[in-house]
Design a protein around this nucleic acid. Structure first.
Lengths: 166, 166
DNA sequence: ATTAAGAATCTCAACGTTGAAATATCAGCA
DNA sequence: TGCTGATATTTCAACGTTGAGATTCTTAAT
């Protein structure tokens, strides 16, 4: 079988036989897969009254453990977006009553963002369904392949310096 | 070794041991990798006076072969963006003289977008360097692993229906 | 104490995408 | 010939992110 990227590679080989385009077979596929999965996740979350980024922030707080609070800086590093984006996201989540800003006593530059009880209930309810949906999306992977793929991706991430979530 | 996603998985296992979060080990890594690579590619292209999306459109036209022209619809499917975005991109590329709109004689609803000589020269000059940069980014992959990874990703893409670029 | 450098967050204008509506055209059929 | 539904592109307002600058606060040195 062949996928869309195979066709792209064939085109390059025909038009530019002097360039060995093998890396596109990896990076191009990562790119397309990421977009396709994003679309699927967006659809899933909208079925639960959530935006993808909303779940992302709530889940980051939830998995950090009690008291379910992190600084704005920690959140923007986790989400891999800029500080302006996180300010905006916190504003909207807080308007929905899912998180609240708590002044940091020890560092008054800092804002701690805390999951409200409602926010925690929501993320706890959705996370299981979200994972089930991801299982569905990865249904084509044999159990052995799951680990193989995860290992290969981990190796790349490490080599690119993605070793910490702080 | 462990990467950022390993830490995220550990957090979930500690906070929600009732949920088997293995799919995050794949989808989370795809996500992070995609963002990191995007950043790198953006930096690379900006060093050559190009936006990532500009190269993307030019390369799509280039690899389609002579006469290096495609309809607007074919371009937005290839780029996986909406039609409004493609109109905007063609506007800007055409303002830079890299592509031109050509009326389609056979279907007057259609607009054919053609690479200019300048556009072709630019993409032909940059594509080799771009691939070399991608080789660098994937430097951590052993030759065998390249194929293994590409195969696993292809399997997923096929299962999600990504089999055509038309 | 005071100062200077650095850090954390917020503000805001510029920018690009989305998604829906508008426009123009095509293809099949009565 | 004249409809009707479908298709291709453009237009445009709403929206979210980026990136730079402003603000407030901390830390370390003097």
């Amino acid at each position: 079988m062949a996928d869309a990227v195979d066709r792209i590679l064939d085109q390059w080989r025909s038009e530019r036989p002097d360039v060995d385009v093998w890396p596109m077979g990896v990076i191009g596929r990562l790119n397309r897969l990421s977009r396709i999965l994003d679309r699927e996740l967006k659809e899933f979350f909208s079925g639960h009254g959530l935006e993808h980024w909303e779940f992302d922030v709530l889940a980051t707080l939830r998995r950090s453990g009690p008291p379910y609070e992190l600084t704005a800086g920690a959140l923007n590093r986790a989400a891999m977006v800029t500080s302006g984006a996180i300010t905006n996201r916190i504003d909207r989540l807080s308007a929905r009553g899912l998180v609240e800003r708590v002044p940091d006593e020890e560092d008054r530059r800092s804002v701690r963002v805390r999951l409200t009880d409602g926010g925690r209930a929501l993320v706890d309810e959705v996370v299981g369904l979200h994972v089930a949906n991801e299982v569905r999306l990865l249904g084509a992977l044999a159990p052995d392949d799951r680990d193989r793929l995860a290992d290969l991706l981990r190796g790349l991430l490490e080599s690119l310096g993605d070793t910490s979530i702080d």
